[in-house]
Design a binder for these strands. Structure first.
Lengths: 336, 336
DNA sequence: CTGTTAGCGCTTTCAT
DNA sequence: ATGAAAGCGCTAACAG
């Protein structure tokens, strides 16, 4: 690989002059500039980013750590982050933890070693270890989508509680009195917040608390399937299912399909998170839609403000409203 | 940030001893080792990867450049790449070009500046500029999914021609004599190879070449929609549509839905690329499935072989077979 | 306007 | 078994 030095020699100037031309910083006579530019072209020179970054103590890189890149919710967030990063001249390192705290810890280590300037993190669990690790080393961090316990940090997420409340309210309004919620792990805030909103809505029609069934599992298809099977084996079979994310919904649908239950005639289904336009031919699910793209841009903005030193001392919290979209997967329960 | 030097001072040894302990290279007395390890823990020291990489002239990082991370086909490839990279101790930089050659060129520049050790590239167009750019600088490159013209390089892809042939053969076998193909840009090999396979199958039943309609567009939903609208406005309305990827299929489905055409009763639909299990409740589309995960692992393997210096001189080409999966979206055309 | 010097944090090489 | 010196490629700071 050619270096600054090679360019300098070929152009017959010092490395500093080349450096100044490359960075358009400081003075350089038109002649010197021309000679340098010719040499750069001739050699196809491209600066060594590692050396620059080592010197500058900045990498102009941020990381986005998500739990499942296959989930359109997170790819949409990633799009928002990427767009903001581009306008600020930053590169983004995408990392995937597959909901594993070990994978997450391994990635955090890599990110520290690579000295990324900041991290946007969707934590795999509810513990703040990763955030603490980063904060200790002075690396600005924004937590996305989920809340972590016992740590003060910038955070951006959708309103899971209110979103769950509104959709369960919609179901009780239709007359449902036996609604199962299929959700993710108990330690993850999106799981527990959605359960909280669900309980709140149910308690309004059912103060004794007898109309519900809460199943904790994983945010994936297989878990959605098995939770649905279990829910439907209960003595009082639910008349409506609320799936706490897309993958859980797909798994549940598979179970309902196997049991030849029609939706919404035999059972209603509501889902947290919508699919981006173009993902489904004919949107069918009643959903709570979170502003995923905006979660990405807002989080990136908080981070870039901190990187620019323009952020206030304390942690900032942005909770974005979710929107209930009623479609065809929910209806009144059968009278029987 | 704490440095090697800080650790050395605290441990009362030289930086070299610390370095040796960290890398478990060379000798270090048990006492020295213990002192160093204590100091590392106390300071929470993590080595500066930039400095290491600058010195070592290796980043232990590869890049995966894809055209659309939202496409499950590419996320599956990414999974294969990631898994192989992990076993080899490499990190992966994911980059998204959104099918734009400008974005691609910009990313290639970044990758060169960051001195990644190698690149896996799904080229946005059919031109070899990016590959050439990388090769000139001695960076091992493997082209995935698509073929580039005029450049010799390692490549791994599914067999688009044979895949298209088999699915169109399936359609003509059902009796279809008027089949439209909706595909991507004319310059992209997956587009043109699929058209070639399609033409080959059609020519067997229709040597005059009058049973076809070829529409080039983009590999996205909007384009799929508009191509389908155009195809259906033709004088001889097609009895079957072959969509060259998932997004095109979804767009086409939206158009068919608007026109209230039932599938497969009114029109058959076949698609290139299957969806991963769990993405659809009840697989419905007749598809040509490519071994996406394997494309990722094979490509990564070729790259790691080159990085290890174990690869032969010349370029290697791996063409993986595709598989026809007949489901419910295709049927014999109506007799009328 | 241009060049020299020093050093970012680490490891290779050569002494001891 | 340990350390001192040099340098990876670049740029800040100073000098001319």
């Amino acid at each position: 690989m050619t270096t600054l030095n090679d360019v300098a020699k070929l152009a017959g100037v010092s490395t500093m002059t080349v450096s100044r031309v490359i960075n358009s910083s400081g003075y350089a006579s038109p002649e010197a500039r021309a000679k340098v530019e010719r040499a750069i072209d001739e050699l196809g020179y491209m600066p060594n980013g590692l050396a620059r970054q080592l010197r500058a103590k900045r990498t102009k890189t941020i990381a986005l750590v998500v739990t499942d890149i296959r989930n359109p919710f997170f790819t949409t967030i990633a799009g928002g982050v990427e767009d903001m990063a581009r306008t600020h001249g930053y590169a983004v390192m995408f990392c995937n933890t597959y909901e594993s705290e070990e994978e997450e810890a391994a990635y955090i280590r890599v990110l520290i070693e690579r000295r990324v300037d900041g991290v946007l993190l969707v934590p795999a669990g509810g513990a703040g270890n990763s955030v603490l690790m980063l904060q200790t080393r002075g690396m600005p961090t924004v937590v996305l989508d989920r809340h972590v316990r016992d740590v003060e940090t910038d955070e951006v997420r959708g309103d899971s509680r209110a979103g769950a409340y509104s959709v369960v309210r919609h179901l009780t309004g239709l007359g449902h009195r036996n609604i199962a919620i299929l959700t993710g792990p108990e330690g993850v805030s999106t799981s527990t917040d959605r359960v909280a909103g669900y309980r709140e809505a149910l308690s309004e029609v059912c103060p004794g608390g007898e109309c519900g069934q809460v199943l904790f599992g994983e945010f994936n298809e297989a878990s959605g399937y098995s939770m649905a099977r279990r829910a439907l084996e209960a003595d009082r079979r639910p008349t409506a299912i609320f799936a706490a994310n897309n993958f859980i919904a797909y798994g549940a649908m598979r179970a309902l399909h196997e049991l030849e239950l029609r939706i919404p005639e035999d059972i209603s289904v509501a889902v947290f998170d919508d699919l981006p336009p173009g993902w489904v031919v004919d949107p069918f699910f009643t959903v709570v839609a979170q502003p995923a793209y905006q979660i990405g841009t807002e989080a990136a903005n908080l981070l870039f403000e901190r990187l620019a030193g323009e952020a206030p001392e304390g942690p900032r919290s942005i909770i974005l409203p979710s929107e209930l979209i009623v479609r065809r997967s929910t209806a009144a329960p059968r009278p029987d």
